[in-house]
Amino acid sequence: MPIESGNRRRTPAEPLPVRRKTSYGSAGRASRALSFSVAVRQVFGSGFGTGFWLAAGWLLLVAACALFATVLPVRDPLDPVIVNRLNAPFTSNWLGADGLGRDMLSRLVHGARVSVVISLTAVSIGMLIGGSLGILAGYFRGRFERALMAVLDVILAFPWLVLLLALVAFIGQSLMAISLAIGLLWIPAYARVARANTLSVVQREYVLAARAMGASTLRILLREVLPNVILPVLAYGLVAMGLVVIVESALAFLGLSVEAPQPTWGGMIAEGKRHLAIAPHVALVPSITMFLTVLSLNYVGDRLRSRFEVKESNL
């Protein structure tokens, strides 16, 4: 599941009896991401191939839909045309109509808004807060690092959906509130990615040299560490966005994402579930759309990640 407590790692307070193979601890998200990248490499070979451009094209299409939803020549996503109720694709509506006779295509296009906005915002929040914390922890180490890691351990002991439900109950169900809630959920993951990359950067010679020459801490962080950490962190962003889309849809499926009448993909799937026996397309169409989007995000993100050679083993 998306926000599995995947990155729990041993705290320094819990010393390892033996230095284990690096892969032992890089469980959870790291290994998942790693396995993703390996899988992708196996499937599509090296170099940006057709698959990459197909996936990137699909993502651009989704982004364009989200951006221009209101001006695109699609019907009103909220307009119930009862005669079209549950009509199959390629009849009265291109992609069919839902249980209230609303146009599926236009609901998909408007639903893309929610997915795009939430995934961009949530990942940015996680990246900014988690990334900064991770860099500071990796650079200053010591008590701060230990405390941070201990807190992250505790947070990761809660199933992600439980945390999310509590956060949503607390912050509310507006688009921004949902983005914020999911974004907060991503802080631990990003803190770990950033910390791992910082750790490996700090040990490199040019950073040691800058330190030896008396460069200020801020200067080193901004000039030496940040540029080297930001690429892997950004590259991780696309894969994270794929997971955010899944998380948001799960929330929407439970009826706890952005409130009706705003269409969301997860909400459409939940609605389609009711008509599964007689009109499976109501669930199928948004499912396929979401599947393709998540697959593309994972794939494109992974190709980029392998270019930047994120050191998964350090996570």
Binding site: E4, S5, G6, R20, S23, A27, G28, L156, L161
Partner: peptide, 24 residues
């Protein structure tokens, strides 16, 4: 070894999944 770690760690994921699955 990493598989074992992940099976343990994934318990949280399984429980999150169970919330939705049990509802469905």
């Amino acid at each position: 070894f990493s598989l074992m770690t992940v099976v343990g760690l994934q318990l949280g994921g399984v429980i999150s999944g169970a919330i939705i699955i049990e509802e469905i």
